[in-house]
Design a protein around this nucleic acid. Structure first.
Lengths: 300, 300
DNA sequence: GGTATTGTCGACAATTATTAAAAACAATTG
DNA sequence: CAATTGTTTTTAATAATTGTCGACAATACC
């Protein structure tokens, strides 16, 4: 079979459901009406009717479609639709790359990966092509793909880009009006940071999540599809590396909390210069953490 | 045939060339040696040898490969390799979209486009997938692609992103040492701008190219793959729209030259604040031009 | 016997072919 | 003549095929 007939199967089953609500001898609506009801093309409706006739559930000739018997459970067609969405695939792929420390230059096997992630090879190809815009993967000279990141250069450039994006967000944030939803959100974040700081010895590992929320909040004020697209990838990468580098984790996180709080304070005071300075310091620290995390994984 | 055998054909021809330099009765090197010489796998070498034998150019049995006759021109296999590169495809695609004013929401026909651009449908699919990261195209609900940009929103966000990228570049530029190659480049640009300004009445249409060079020069100081990737697309889009909007073209260009010159002057004076201010003014103008160009094409 | 070379096979990716689905158009019925 | 059905064309998703590569086993030569 060339392409899956899931669409047909689902429509057929729903058509059975419709039949089940009728009485024997009743007539079914016109093809076009059924098509619109099932949200499907007439071609599928006709295939389904054909099948209903073959199963002797209806009598069909010309415009008359008469119900001969009520459908039973056994009439239903099996249908499996546990397909991964594009978003889910992206998360899983990065998860795989980062968690298993796939080294730069590794050849990516489309057939193998499509099995691993349970998506058609086609979809994976497409996904890799889209990732190539981020320089994460690239085509090999004679066909196939290879993992390009995360080299040291990549990490540096990614961090720099992140810094630029986020400082831009900070600048926009301080100019927002009092009614904007960001202010209560920052207030809540401030409280959460203070709570975590008080419990730092036992809960220092919760910081990773808080860090994500903090940066997401700042990024959220920028309504820009390009920035948003990048932020998704950046967030994932930093998130993983943060969790890796276990050295001095408690102290690092405590220091980062302090930097966050300073930034939040400056933001709430609408002090752009101070907010930028504070944010830049934090982002620079973050960049260094990413780099040292790479060194310790000897990927650099 | 499933995939092209261009690789075989080219190798075969080069093998003929090699044979032409030998004498009848000479022996050819081992398969592996030939493979390395032709930069090709042994499989191809063996296919080529097979063909040489079929053409009675060599006698081949086991390890002995004896030249029976010198090859002639007619022995060569025809090979066509006028394939579009990925870069070329990108340029052509954007060219098509922008030049023919393809409206947002248009369904993109992969079969049709692959014919139009002379690339295998596969390659086009991949290209569209990569463009989807820029939000220029998106998948349709039930398969296929559609053109998403250039709506007004898209243009606004693209412009904003461009402004961010370029102001960042300006900040980095003023911090560069005297020995950096950017300074003579700026000097040359300044001269070119002055020349054009003097001749504005006759040469005002040359400004589009100069504008491109100006922004490319500023962008070139940022060594960042992400920024570079975006700049490519941004440059193309702005370039086209600039050429479209014919209203007040001379005056607009003259004004832009003035803005460029002010920016160059500030840059060369290492005055970051002034350079940023001047650059921002110019970029804002540019944004407005793009928007009004959209309006006049009634795509907004 | 050891090394260079060749024969064979499996894996993968690029391309073609096939199929499901949609949409357009023509024919027909009430 | 308007609603409905029959037919054909077009398109995208998937399967199948083929070219290419690399690895390993077998063989020939020293």
């Amino acid at each position: 079979m060339a392409r899956t007939d899931d669409r047909f199967r689902e429509a057929y089953n729903r058509l059975l459901d419709h039949c089940a609500e009728q009485k024997v001898g009743d007539h079914l609506p016109a093809e076009l009406a059924l098509a619109s009801y099932l949200d499907v093309s007439r071609t599928i409706v006709r295939s389904a009717l054909e099948r209903l006739r073959a199963e002797r559930i209806i009598d069909w000739s010309g415009r008359s479609k008469t119900l001969l018997r009520l459908p039973v459970e056994a009439d239903r067609l099996p249908v499996q639709t546990d397909q991964l969405s594009a978003e889910e695939l992206e998360r899983q792929f990065l998860d795989w790359v980062l968690r298993f420390d796939v080294p730069p230059g590794t050849a990516l096997n489309v057939t193998d990966l499509s099995r691993k992630f349970g998506v058609p090879a086609h979809g994976l190809q497409e996904f890799l092509a889209s990732l190539s815009r981020f320089g994460l993967v690239q085509r090999r000279l004679r066909g196939g793909w290879e993992l390009a990141g995360f080299t040291r250069d990549y990490a540096v450039e990614l961090s720099d880009f992140r810094i630029m994006l986020e400082l831009n967000a900070v600048s926009q944030l301080v100019a927002l009006p009092d009614e904007h939803g960001i202010w209560p959100r920052l207030h809540a974040l401030e409280a959460a940071h203070n709570e975590l700081a008080a419990d730092i010895d036992t809960r220092f590992q919760d910081f990773s999540l808080l860090d994500e929320q903090f940066h997401a909040a700042i990024g959220s004020v920028v309504r820009n599809r390009f920035a948003a697209e990048f932020q998704k990838v950046i967030t994932l990468i930093f998130h993983y590396h943060y969790q890796w580098d276990k050295k001095d984790e408690r102290d690092r996180n405590l220091a980062a909390i302090g930097e966050h709080l300073k930034t939040i304070e400056a933001l709430r005071a609408r002090d752009e210069a101070r907010a930028l300075k504070s944010a830049r310091e934090h982002l620079d620290t973050s960049k260094q953490t990413l780099l040292s995390s790479l060194r310790s994984h000897s990927l650099a």
